[in-house]
Design a protein around this nucleic acid. Structure first.
Lengths: 107, 107
DNA sequence: CCACATGTTGCCTGCAAGCTGCTACAATCG
DNA sequence: CGATTGTAGCAGCTTGCAGGCAACATGTGG
């Protein structure tokens, strides 16, 4: 259960980077990157949003996907939830099946 | 533009508490509470989630509503977004009008 | 076998969030 | 008047986040 780290590692290998090569490109130390990939950060948590942003950039990954794997709510979604709390409170209570139905009816 | 503080103040008055009375009930100092209500915290930010939780409890307010006023995403909603990112990424892109339409069609 | 790149880990630090806890002063009210 | 209430400023303090450094392990080609 380390979806985020595994994804990062995958993207990194795909680009042929070593930890020491990638680290300076995203502005952190290589040892920190290692911990990020293995989910071994001292404090139980994940990388900061700004680091995820830089990683997505350099590795050409989907930033929102990475944020979600790291269990963070991406800003565009967050803003929308805050703007329309009435709507999202209700939507959040819906079953998977009803969500699917709504998505289908959007076309 | 101080929705959260105003709401807290309203709830507090409704219960007939003074700042100095309420403060110990939620475990903070009265001067801090004053700044929370007036949005004058030293660091630009809002009260912590745990304080909001205690306030909702003591003042018998709706915790999710208060969190949203403080521009924080409540846990139940957060979990749902993480569980169904595909759905919420799309829903977040919808206009207010389309959201209203969906809500209406839920009955 | 050695040299060297790569990955892993433990400890250590800087900094900002989220408070505490005074203090002082103005406004309000019985 | 005296007591209560709200407002504000300032100095600290504790915790957790974010990351650095140095040493150690593992692996790989020559």
């Amino acid at each position: 259960m380390n979806k985020f780290g595994d994804r990062i590692r995958g993207l990194r290998k795909a680009k042929g980077y070593s930890l020491r090569q990638l680290a300076p490109l995203v502005g952190v130390g290589f040892s920190y990157l290692c911990k990020v990939e293995n989910g071994k950060l001292d404090f139980d948590g994940t990388a900061s949003e700004s680091l995820i942003h830089r990683l997505a950039d350099v590795l050409e990954g989907d930033e929102e996907e990475l944020l979600l794997l790291a269990e963070k709510v991406p800003e565009p979604i967050r803003r929308r939830v805050i703007a329309r709390p009435d709507a999202f409170r209700r939507l959040a209570e819906l079953s998977d099946r009803k969500l699917d139905w709504i998505l289908a009816s959007l076309d």
